[in-house]
Every structure is written in structure tokens, then in C-alpha cells.
Simulated scan of single mutants.
Amino acid sequence: MQSPATQVTSLIILATLIFLLMPVFLILYIRLYNKHKRNHVIEKENMKQQFDAEILKTLVEVQDQTMQSIATELHDNVGQLLSLTSLTLNSINLTDQEKAGKKIENSLSLLSKSIKELRELAKLLHGEQMVEHGIGHAIDQEISWLSKTGAYELKVSNDLFDIQVSSPDKDLIILRLLQEIINNIIKHAQATTIQIDTYFSDNKLFLKVKENGVGFNYDETKAKKTGMGLNSIHKRIDMINGKLDLDSSPQIGTTILIEIPYP
């Protein structure tokens, strides 16, 4: 059994060791904390750079898609209107004033339609119809282009026109998601009917697209990581902390529901 003096000496030595080691542990803790803080800052900066790069890429893709739509519209719509105007004017026989008057009237009507279409295209070129006026208007414009193809029976419910919040960065990604889904339907689905529903609830934006095409095996396609733009869709949804619910069956069709925290 230790004597009281020995016990006191041991306690003094232990207290001294603790007193000496505490600053060492404190310094180590501060260093680890600062290292973790620096790594966190670097990680946040890298994530911001990746997000900004993806936003820029998305903006370029949206603009490219818009330019393709404009080119198609110029060729298929405005071009046809002007061709019809030219044919009508060239067929005018000035000796038959009554018929000539009707053809001139028709030509003026065709020119008026052409001017209206060109004005709409000019707005689109200036970005007024993309995301500047809100995601509801941007989606409406995209659906308008799809409607003009006349290839699908469209059922649309767009409740995003009057929402009081906005997020331009997310709007770009949401618009690109819709464009990518529509492109996949055009390329792969062989659908005749497309239903598009958009709405806002509980600080979340919902985008639902349903079509009656040939469908596919979602699990197999996802596992292969090829085709149909699914990887790109998943990547974009993950970027904005969204959720994807996809239900597809061969010969029945596909339903996609995207839920996004907004703004």
C-alpha cells in the first residue's frame, strides 16, 4: 500500500502530465478543425464550380434546342407562308379584277401571319420566352413548339404561370429536363398521346410527363447506363436535389414524375 506522500507525489505527476498534454491535444484539435474547415471550403467551392459549369452547359443546350426550334419554324411555317404568298401573287390575273382582289387580300393575310410568326421568333431569340418570364411561360413555349408538329394528341395542365417564387438557375435545368424528355419521346417512344402536368405545392415543383408509347424496361436500361438520356436526366435532377419516379412498361407507355425543391 502506497504511503500518503507517495500518493500525493503520483497525483502531482499525473496532474502535471495532464496539464502538459492538454495544450498538445488542444493544438492538435485546432489543426484538425482548421484542416476540416479548409477541406469543407474547398469542397463547397468545387461544388459551386461544378454547378456553375453545369448551368453554363445547360444554358448552351437550351439555346441550341431553341435555335433548332427556330430553324424548324422558319422552314416549316414561315417558309411555307411566304411560298404560298409568292404563288398567290404570281397567279394574279389583272384582267380579272374580282379574282385579283381576292388573291391580293389572301396574300396580305398570309403576309400578316408571316410577320406575326417572325415577331414571335424574335422574342424567342431575345430570350423573352425562355426563363426570363418564369418557368411557367418557358414550359408553355416548349409545349407550343411540340404542338405545332401536329404529331401528338397533347393534354396539358400548366399551373406554374402565377407562382410567386422563382429560381432562374433551376428553371434552366427544369426546362432542359422537359426538352430531354420530349426528345426521348420523339426518338424512341412511338407515342400518339402525351400528357404534361406541372404544378407547385408545399415549396416543391412537380413535372409529370405521361405517354402511351412502346415503353421499356427501366431497371435494365438504368443498369446498362446507356441510351435514352436517362443518365443525363438523373444527373440534372441530383444537381437540384430533386427526385425522379419513373414507371414504364413495354407496350403500355411511360410516366415520369419529377419533384424539385423550389426555389
Rank of each mutant, 00 (worst) to 15 (best):
F51H: 08
K123V: 04
K243D: 15
T85F: 04
S69P: 03
S86T: 07
Y199G: 04
T88K: 02
Y218I: 14
M67S: 09
T149H: 09
Q179E: 15
T193Q: 14
I258W: 01
P168I: 00
L177V: 06
I240Y: 01
L17S: 10
F200Q: 02
N90D: 15
Q65K: 09
K224M: 05
Q195N: 08
D76R: 13
H40I: 02
E180C: 08
D247M: 00
G150D: 14
R236I: 07
M239F: 05
V8I: 15
Q49H: 03
T193V: 00
A53F: 00
F216Q: 06
K57H: 11
G136S: 04
Y33A: 13
F51N: 06
R31K: 07
D247Y: 05
L87A: 09
N183F: 10
D219S: 15
G150L: 08
I173K: 07
A71I: 12
L246D: 03
T9I: 14
I185F: 04
M22N: 05
T9K: 15
K37I: 13
S109Q: 08
L26K: 02
A15S: 15
L118C: 08
I55H: 01
D162Y: 11
Q141G: 00
I258S: 02
G253Q: 12
F25T: 02
E259S: 12
K99R: 05
E153I: 13
N46T: 02
S147M: 10
L160E: 06
S112G: 05
S166A: 15
Q164W: 12
L121W: 14
A138Q: 05
I18T: 04
L244C: 10
G253W: 06
N46I: 14
L59W: 05
H36K: 14
I115C: 04
I233G: 04
Q141C: 06
I139D: 07
L94W: 03
I13N: 14
E153M: 14
I135N: 01
A151T: 08
T192W: 06
L17Y: 14
I143S: 01
